[in-house]
């Protein structure tokens, strides 16, 4: 199968600017390091630093952007896309989060610029009532039809009495088929 924008498929949410966390915690780390030296055979190895400046905020950003669509990609979330465009928007979301904007405000910001198309969770409005209500309408209608059909059907169906010949066949069948008819 031909994928038209396959390079956009690869996930990349690695931020470009990385500040060095280790400096901030140098003191603490030294103590930890000493503890490691004494306790662990891995003593010389140092723990790798997370890429994100603020892992908690990063998780929030990823969670939000998983429900948003990357417009330039074929069909991918902002979190899942490696496209430049997705990188920019992730940066934008990250910055807005740092500026204490709520998820709602960020979504409104994006919808104002790109329309409802960016939302993987379509908003509930008159044009999408059928979308959101459809499945439950299907279920209710189906269950209703099923119920009344079964009730009516029970009255319609009569057990045909077996004829003499059918009885003989049946007996023969039972004998022959015993044990292999699930």
């Amino acid at each position: 199968m031909n994928l038209a924008l396959p390079f956009a498929l690869l996930k990349n949410s690695y931020p470009q600017k990385i500040s060095d966390l280790r400096n901030t915690f140098a003191g603490k780390q030294l103590i930890l390091l000493l503890a490691f030296v004494l306790l662990s055979p891995l003593s010389w190895a140092k723990e790798a630093a997370p890429v994100a400046e603020d892992p908690v905020l990063e998780r929030r950003m990823i969670a939000l952007s998983e429900d948003l669509r990357c417009l330039v990609c074929q069909n991918e979330s902002l979190a899942g896309s490696r496209a430049d465009f997705a990188n920019d928007l992730r940066r934008e979301i990250r910055e807005q989060m740092q500026a204490n904007k709520s998820d709602r405000e960020i979504i409104d910001f994006l919808v104002a610029r790109y329309g409802d198309f960016v939302l993987y969770r379509p908003p509930v409005k008159p044009a999408t009532y059928l979308l959101w209500g459809g499945p439950f309408a299907f279920l209710l209608t189906g269950a209703g039809i099923l119920f009344f059909y079964l009730k009516r059907r029970r009255k319609q169906v009569e057990e045909p009495p077996l004829t003499e010949e059918q009885h003989r066949h049946a007996e023969a069948l039972l004998k022959e088929d015993k044990g292999n008819n699930a």
């Binding site: 998983e66 429900d67 669509r69 979330s77 329309g115 409802d116 198309f117 960016v118 939302l119 993987y120 969770r121 379509p122 044009a127 999408t128 059928l130 979308l131 459809g134 499945p135 299907f138």
Partner: peptide, 28 residues
């Protein structure tokens, strides 16, 4: 199956009725 079909085709339905473009994804 009907719901998955509805969700898959809904963007097409809205677009062909000129009601705007939406995306239906995993959350739905």
């Amino acid at each position: 199956a009907g719901s998955v079909l509805l969700g898959t085709l809904y963007p097409l339905i809205m677009d062909s009725l000129d009601l705007g473009k939406i995306s239906v994804g995993t959350p739905y």
